[in-house]
Amino acid sequence: ITGDVSAANKDAIRKQMDAAASKGDVETYRKLKAKLKGIR
């Protein structure tokens, strides 16, 4: 179950990262990237 949750989280975070990148929001992008590392 835990694996599914983190996989879903990663997917959601990647989508947020894409949105931040397209807006040029480097700050948010970095925060999300750090979150991704924390999940692993």
Rank of each mutant, 00 (worst) to 15 (best):
I39H: 07
T28K: 06
R30F: 07
L32E: 02
V5C: 13
A12S: 10
D18P: 00
D25S: 00
K23E: 08
K37I: 08
K23V: 10
D4I: 08
E27P: 02
S22H: 07
L32I: 02
D4P: 09
K23Y: 04
T2M: 09
A7Q: 11
K31P: 00
G3W: 06
G3C: 13
D4E: 09
I1K: 09
S6R: 08
M17R: 00
T28E: 13
N9T: 14
A34I: 06
V26R: 03
N9Y: 15
A21M: 15
A20P: 00
A19S: 07
K37T: 08
S22L: 14
R14M: 10
Y29F: 05
A21R: 13
L36I: 04
A20G: 02
A34Y: 03
V5A: 08
K35N: 03
M17L: 04
R30W: 05
L36V: 01
A19T: 06
A19V: 12
T2L: 10
R40M: 15
A34F: 03
L32Y: 03
Q16W: 08
A34Q: 11
R14K: 09
Q16E: 10
K15N: 05
N9K: 13
K37L: 12
E27R: 07
K10T: 14
K10S: 08
V26T: 07
E27K: 06
R14T: 05
Y29Q: 02
I39L: 14
K15W: 04
D25R: 00
K23N: 11
D25A: 00
Y29H: 02
K33I: 07
I13C: 00
S22D: 06
I1S: 12
D18V: 14
Y29E: 03
I1Y: 13
G38Y: 09
A20F: 00
A19Y: 11
T28P: 00
K31E: 08
A20N: 00
R30T: 07
L36S: 01
G38D: 10
A19D: 12
V5I: 13
A34E: 14
A34W: 04
G38V: 07
N9D: 14
S22M: 13
R40T: 14
A20Y: 01
R40W: 14
A12T: 10
K15L: 09
T2Y: 14
I39K: 05
I39E: 08
G24H: 02
D25E: 02
I39D: 06
D11I: 06
D25P: 00
A8S: 11
T2D: 13
T28W: 04
D4K: 07
L36H: 03
R40Q: 15
K23D: 06
A21K: 13
K37Y: 07
K33F: 09
L32F: 03
A21Q: 08
I1N: 10
R30M: 13
